[in-house]
Design a binder for these strands. Structure first.
Lengths: 344, 344
DNA sequence: GACGCTATAGTAAACGTTTACACAGCATTT
DNA sequence: AAATGCTGTGTAAACGTTTACTATAGCGTC
């Protein structure tokens, strides 16, 4: 019948701790946050009371009083996509380093969901915002960028806000990809692009086309395919490409998922990789090295990008304008999926 | 020089909206939450003011006043692990369906980080808690389970709290895996287990051993390997197994990642799969169907588990004890990585 | 015209923290 | 002995919402 635990349903508050420890709430706050010196005696009493009550500071009340939620928000298309998994992982790591929690939202390539997700994150007063939203229009995104000067965009360039956009050079990456095939003697190169309406897709297509042009190769519309950049898309792309079997010796894909599943479909149809068709991917996912043949690809340093975007956003939130984004370079990862046609 | 926008740094509050719309804060709250009838005139004034100011309700203040954070917390080992990526994805989807946001923390198999992550989630007053923590001791976890009756555990059975533990039957799943190899005529079966100190590992090992025993097969300690259940682990397992090349015709792995990378390492060493060695995985990840040969494996319905755990936690939080967890069954996905030795 | 009812709207007290400010006690300086 | 400074502590006002309670206007009924 003690005073504690009168209502087992209710969480204890800082006042309960103060009462039990026989100190003021200010002292409890100071001990728990380490924000000011407190006598050994008081500190021990507070810690003991905290342990006894199983007390944790209420982060919401804290956020309100401090005007800082200590939460970072991140929006991605879909966490289960390995690309975003890696990205979210590094965002969380950086957040954790700064003692912050991570709020994760998914947009699923839907403009409505993306916008709602952003507004939800905003309502949580995030002290850092990393946004991957490719479906909402520039105009809308720009308004958020203007109102929230610590918001950082990933994988998209928004005119006027270039210094808060974190991306690789898609054009250059795909140019490197296709050039690699060309250097290996390929002259008829198919391209499987993403069918999402996103700049990544058009930039990579431009890189593909430019590489062909620079090497005086003709463009063959038959072998430029657009599919959802997922496993299923790769299988469908393979079906379409089979109809033009003689018109290419190599395939450059928008990403590893497309390359991997297209490759698998070809192999199942008895087409040997890389003997009959060579492949190159993009992203350098976890899975590419497990494939047989292992997939030659272009790195997409998504972990660095996630980490840098998070760091930048945090710095901006605290009005620190000194953080400079590093360069995110795309480099070639040479594996076994390209046959060198010059060799024989 | 209007009254608005006096301090461009500061976010508008509900009071600013009320003033601009010439109504009380209560009315603004009612409009924005739809909690009571408001005249058309007032509603329009409020919505107009909201739009003009770019106002969003402060979720922290809201949480405090309502005593409900509208946030669900989830702890996993590592978001970039495809297994957890899928899990987090479905947690977010369910959270979203209920209008809640998702807080994601990572434990990285470290007991200290796991415990800190849980306490951090608790401090955020999550109205739903899905915890995958395999490294902290039962005793500690039990204390949390007792204090927070809406906390749900995933992939672990905590004695006394079975009805809040969401898992597959690991024993049964691995028994199915090994039995499948045996049915295909294999009698010497290697096992690559997870080296993490988790019950999943011991349960699956038990399933392996039991399947051997039930079919009167001998246990060969040489070909039971423990490795980190990631790609690198699979490569190392392959190296170890090569030393006992003649002592097995098939490999059962703790998960697809181990199977995939072990398989790839074997192939690179010139060992043909499934002609010389058969493989079976566990989890049925995205990548397994892309491999060559595609990997026969056991489903791990992690998406259902994530969704169910989230639903259960939400229900419990609202004192609704009617939600019953479904059964999570493991089923065999037959692909091309097993050679049938009976066939010839 | 008095009355009661309904429909809207407003007032102000919570919610659980942080922190500016005040102050008490004590040691040191003058 | 008085003045000063330093330490540790407490008090109470924010922070931005929600919501119980209260107030008022409009209207129909008797």
């Amino acid at each position: 019948m003690t005073d504690l635990n009168q209502n087992p349903e209710k969480q204890p508050t800082i006042r309960d701790v103060a009462k039990l420890a026989q100190v003021s709430v200010a002292t409890v706050s100071r001990v728990l946050n380490g924000t000011a010196k407190v006598s050994e005696k008081a500190r021990n009493a507070v810690l003991k009371a905290q342990r006894e009550l199983g007390f944790y500071l209420n982060a919401n009340a804290r956020a309100l009083a401090q005007k800082d939620s200590e939460v970072i928000g991140v929006l991605v298309s879909e966490v289960s996509d390995p690309y975003f998994g890696v990205m979210v992982r590094s965002c969380e790591e950086i957040a954790h380093e700064h003692g912050k929690a991570l709020l994760v939202a998914q947009g699923f390539h839907d403009p409505v969901r993306e916008q709602r997700a952003i507004e939800n994150l905003l309502s949580h007063q995030c002290s850092g915002l990393v946004i991957h939203a490719l479906s909402i229009p520039d105009r809308v995104l720009a308004r958020y960028m203007q109102d929230f000067p610590y918001m950082v965009i990933i994988n998209r360039v928004l005119p006027g806000y270039e210094d808060r956009c974190v991306n690789i050079n898609n054009f250059q990456g795909m140019y490197l990809s296709v050039s690699t095939l060309i250097k290996n003697g390929h002259r008829k190169i198919a391209f499987i692009n993403s069918s999402h309406h996103i700049v990544d897709a058009s930039e990579r297509l431009a890189g593909y086309l430019c590489a062909l042009r620079d090497h005086n190769l003709d463009v063959n519309e038959n072998i430029i395919i657009s599919e959802l950049p997922l496993l299923e898309g790769g299988a469908r792309a393979a079906q379409k490409l089979m109809a033009f079997r003689g018109e290419f010796t190599a395939v450059a894909a928008y990403n590893d998922a497309l390359a991997a599943s297209c490759m698998a479909t070809f192999e199942n149809a008895g087409i040997k990789v890389p003997d009959e068709v060579s492949f190159i991917g993009f992203d350098n996912l976890f899975l590419s090295s497990c494939l047989n043949p292992s997939l030659t690809t272009i790195t997409n340093p998504v972990d660095d990008m996630g980490a840098s975007a998070t760091r930048l956003s945090l710095a901006l939130y605290h009005h620190d304008y000194s953080y400079k984004l590093p360069e995110f370079s795309t480099i070639l990862i040479n594996r076994k999926s390209i046959r060198n046609l010059n060799a024989n």
